[in-house]
């Protein structure tokens, strides 16, 4: 499903932020990506959702080396990935409902099949009465839930969530992880980055741990992780 092989990344001419990253996520697996602030979690996820090209190494998504994909093929690959950005990245000039509807529009969905699912998602996360609001009038936690709705509404094959619980209390955080668990149960591959160790303690899913730009334990641990992830899928 997702394979990183000896991936390294530097921003511009800066130092290598990530080094020798190798791992494999099985289809339908659920993985936590942990590590202290600045370890490189967001950077790793950015490469996974094709928002950033690795400086070296290869990344395979859905069984194909993305470096070999043509420019025309990339949008379709990206649409199979739902992303919860650490900073939400909601469009302030659109309503909450239109923000959530965006992936459906990009997928070319017909108009009458756009609003229903978006509304349903928002009701599910308890924002059914705020659909016409502007994201700027929502609290951080509410915006986070809108961002999650947008990531999952088009039923992507892969969900990449960067600190999806960073702005909510633990009770809501727990519920959001449970939401990802639901999606995992219907076969979606999920990776969730967080540095909130206590929150994910109750969940028995494999962890990728980043420490200072490297997977903890070094590349040698990657096969073990892959096996672990495979068991879950």
């Amino acid at each position: 499903m997702i394979r990183f092989e000896n991936v390294g990344l530097r921003y511009g001419q800066g130092p290598e932020v990530l080094r020798d990253i190798s791992f494999h996520l099985e289809p339908g697996s659920f993985t936590f990506l942990t590590g202290p602030s600045g370890a490189g979690k967001s950077t790793l996820l950015r490469m996974m959702y094709l928002g950033l090209k690795p400086s070296r190494g290869t990344i395979s998504l859905f069984g194909a080396d993305v470096a070999r994909a043509t420019r025309r093929e990339l949008p379709a690959i990206r649409r199979r990935i739902g992303v919860v950005f650490q900073d939400f990245r909601l469009l302030d000039h659109l309503s909450v409902l239109e923000n959530v509807a965006l992936p459906l529009r990009l997928a070319g969905e017909v108009e009458r099949r756009i609003e229903g699912p978006a509304r349903e998602m928002l009701e599910w996360v308890g924002l059914g009465d705020r659909i016409e609001a502007s994201p700027t009038t929502l609290s951080g936690g509410e915006q986070q839930r809108v961002a999650i709705c947008r990531a999952v509404v088009a039923q992507p094959s892969l969900i990449v969530a960067d600190e999806p619980t960073g702005n909510v209390d633990d009770a809501i955080g727990y519920r959001l992880i449970r939401l990802f668990e639901e999606l995992h149960r219907i076969g979606t591959t999920i990776i969730v980055a967080t540095h909130n160790q206590p929150l994910i303690e109750p969940f028995d899913y494999p962890r990728l741990h980043l420490e200072d730009g490297q997977l903890a334990g070094g590349p040698a641990r990657a096969p073990a992780l892959a096996a672990e992830a495979g068991l879950v899928g």
């Binding site: 959702y49 928002g51 949008p75 690959i77 990206r78 469009l91 992936p103 990009l106 997928a107």
Partner: peptide
């Protein structure tokens, strides 16, 4: 916005 649309899979 443009970068977001791009990364969400909007065609050029």
């Amino acid at each position: 916005i443009v970068a977001l649309l791009h990364v969400m899979g909007a065609r050029d």
